[in-house]
């Protein structure tokens, strides 16, 4: 796939998610805490889940880019690794908005079992988007095939740098559908 196309797409999606997060942060606090169903995450918890999971890639990429991005020349072609491609495609919502895979959240990514979620979770998410976007600027100048990063599926599974950008953004898209459903439910239930 074209590296430039990939990066432009990701920038577009991330800018949209960032802007939406800023809007959502201004919603009434009660709506952000509203639980759509017993045991379901509230809006803040979804954001915290994204911080916990995407954070692994952002930190991993920041580290590897700082050390090695300058050593590689820009490569106009990115060839996804098969695992990275498989997980990204399985995870992201289909064009019609349908979620293909159901997944169980790993304990380390469950905000309910970690430190809880608050307004600051949204602020941290916005910050994470900014760091992602900064990484994409560097991504244009280097070879995304040449570096690998530990994945959130466990340190044994390592994604190519390009997949380490694609996968978390696909994962965020999936959860933004959940956030929008929770926003609607909060508006309905709180009337």
């Amino acid at each position: 796939m074209s590296t430039e196309q990939l990066i432009t797409d990701l920038e577009h999606i991330l800018a949209g998610q960032r802007a939406r997060a800023v809007e959502i942060a201004a919603m009434p606090a009660g709506a952000l805490l509203h639980r759509p169903e017993d045991g379901a995450w509230n809006i803040l918890e979804v954001f915290e889940h994204l911080n916990l999971s995407s954070g692994i890639y952002v930190r991993g990429l920041e580290k590897v880019f700082a050390l090695r991005a300058a050593r590689h020349r820009a490569n106009p072609e990115f060839r996804p690794g098969w695992l990275g491609d498989y997980f990204t495609k399985g995870l992201q919502p289909q064009p019609d908005g349908v979620i293909k895979w159901r997944m169980r959240t790993m304990r380390m990514f469950d905000p309910g079992r970690q430190q809880g979620a608050s307004h600051a979770s949204i602020e941290r998410f916005v910050d994470l988007c900014d760091r992602f976007l900064a990484l994409l600027t560097i991504a244009r100048t280097t070879d995304l095939n040449a570096m690998r990063v530990a994945s959130s599926l466990g340190p044994i599974i390592r994604f190519k740098a390009g997949d380490a950008l694609r996968f978390p953004v696909a994962h965020q898209r999936r959860h933004f559908l959940q956030i929008e459903r929770a926003v609607q439910r909060a508006a309905m239930d709180r009337k």
Binding site: G112, G116, A117
Partner: peptide, 11 residues
């Protein structure tokens, strides 16, 4: 301004 803090989160 209103701020939301979920159960277990740090103020």
């Amino acid at each position: 301004r209103e701020y939301a803090f979920g159960r277990g989160s740090e103020v």
